[in-house]
Simulated assay, not measured.
Amino acid sequence: MRTDLLGWMRLQWDRTAAWGCVLAGVITLFIGWLGVSGTAFTAKQLPYIAGCGLGGLFLLGTGAMLWLSADLRDEWRKLDRIETTIRDAGLAALAASAVPAADRDLYVVGRSQ
Rank of each mutant, 00 (worst) to 15 (best):
A95N: 11
L60E: 10
C21Y: 01
L72Y: 13
P47Y: 03
L72P: 00
F41Q: 14
Q12A: 08
L29E: 05
W19A: 13
L29H: 01
G25N: 00
I86Y: 05
F58S: 09
L11W: 01
L91E: 13
D74L: 12
L60S: 08
A43K: 03
L68I: 06
T42Q: 07
I31N: 04
T62Y: 04
I86A: 13
A96S: 13
L54A: 12
S97H: 03
M1Q: 12
D80A: 14
K44R: 13
R87H: 08
Y48A: 14
R87Q: 07
K78M: 13
G53P: 03
T39E: 14
E75Y: 03
G20L: 03
G56M: 00
W13L: 05
L106N: 14
R87A: 12
L57Y: 06
K44D: 10
L68G: 05
G20P: 01
W76R: 15
L79H: 07
F30D: 12
G56F: 00
G63R: 01
V109N: 10
A98R: 14
T84G: 05
A89R: 09
F41Y: 11
F41D: 15
G7A: 10
V22N: 01
G20D: 02
T16I: 00
R104F: 04
L106H: 14
L46R: 05
T42F: 13
D4P: 02
T39Y: 08
T28M: 09
C21R: 06
V26I: 15
A93H: 08
L5I: 15
A89T: 02
R77L: 09
Y107L: 15
T85I: 11
G61H: 11
G32H: 05
F58H: 06
A95S: 09
S37G: 06
F58A: 15
R81W: 03
T85P: 02
T42P: 02
L59P: 02
L5E: 15
G51T: 12
G38D: 15
R104M: 12
M65E: 04
L57Q: 05
A64M: 10
G61Y: 11
V26H: 07
G35R: 12
V108S: 04
T42E: 07
T84R: 12
A40Y: 00
D14G: 04
L57I: 05
I86D: 02
W19Y: 10
L66F: 07
P100D: 11
T16C: 06
R73A: 15
I86H: 08
S37F: 04
A95T: 09
A93E: 09
T16A: 12
C52H: 05
R10C: 08
R10S: 12
P100K: 13
D74F: 05
L66D: 01
A101K: 12
